[in-house]
Write a protein that binds this DNA or RNA. Structure first.
Lengths: 135, 135
DNA sequence: CAGCATCCTACCTGATACTG
DNA sequence: CAGTATCAGGTAGGATGCTG
């Protein structure tokens, strides 16, 4: 049998609003990568995605299913999710996005920091929300 | 001089919430593509992006600037926006995303339609928001 | 020309608690 | 196990009108 998904599969700053590249909703790309090596059950997905609530994960899964990117099969009490061919084809753009992020993540962090610092100097300390987590 | 940006540069269903791949906010990818061949002024951008209000376009530009993806230069009354090297590097993932969308757009449309149709049959006609526009 | 101010709506996301 | 229900906050997007 395939190994279970590791709880630390994703960085704790992941997903991130800082990452300009997004696939579907906040968790969609992570879900797709979880399904890369075969079908997974709801509770299996919750291990690496331990920071998402069941409600939100359900909505993300429904949305992916609606778009034909994953398929849900229920033979109670088992429910499994797997990639469709179209969903699997998203792995390539996702990989490209990840590669881009790896190369430019630090530049992005620096740019934001100096922009916000300049804005603070100009306005006398206003706003500037905290950085998010990673994709 | 470079030709002005055509008003019909983007499809009228573009950007789209249907497209699962997004770059920054709703208009960011379009802005970046507008800047591909050199700097553009605010009002130049408004031609192909005629469906975005000035407020929203401004916010999108500020956000891209904050992330170091574009650079804003003002020598009044001229204001120009141009891609930074990091911003330009996004053109490649964007192209990959566009290629993916071209290949799978129809499948996405069909999947949503049949999912919503099945949902209507199951629940007796509830919900199902209209499709969005394209990315 | 290149925005800003104001108001408003919808959606996304999450916390918490509960269930067939 | 695989969700659903409820409540609440924050942000994105847009309409409209005004300005240095």
């Amino acid at each position: 049998m395939r190994p279970p998904l590791p709880a630390d599969m994703f960085d704790e700053v992941c997903p991130s609003s800082l990452n300009p590249i997004r696939f579907g909703d906040k968790w969609a790309a992570l879900v797709i990568r979880c399904l890369e090596h075969g079908p997974r059950r709801f509770s299996e997905l919750r291990v690496p995605l331990h920071r998402v609530t069941p409600k939100v994960l359900t909505r993300s899964l429904r949305s992916l299913e609606r778009d034909g990117l994953i398929r849900r099969t229920a033979q109670p009490p088992r429910v499994e999710y797997e990639l469709t061919p179209v969903g699997r084809s998203l792995l390539e753009p996702i990989a490209v996005a990840c590669a881009w992020t790896d190369r430019h993540w630090d530049a992005l962090l620096d740019a934001r920091e100096s922009y916000d610092a300049a804005a603070r100097r100009a306005t006398g300390r206003i706003a500037s929300p905290s950085a998010g987590s990673r994709a």
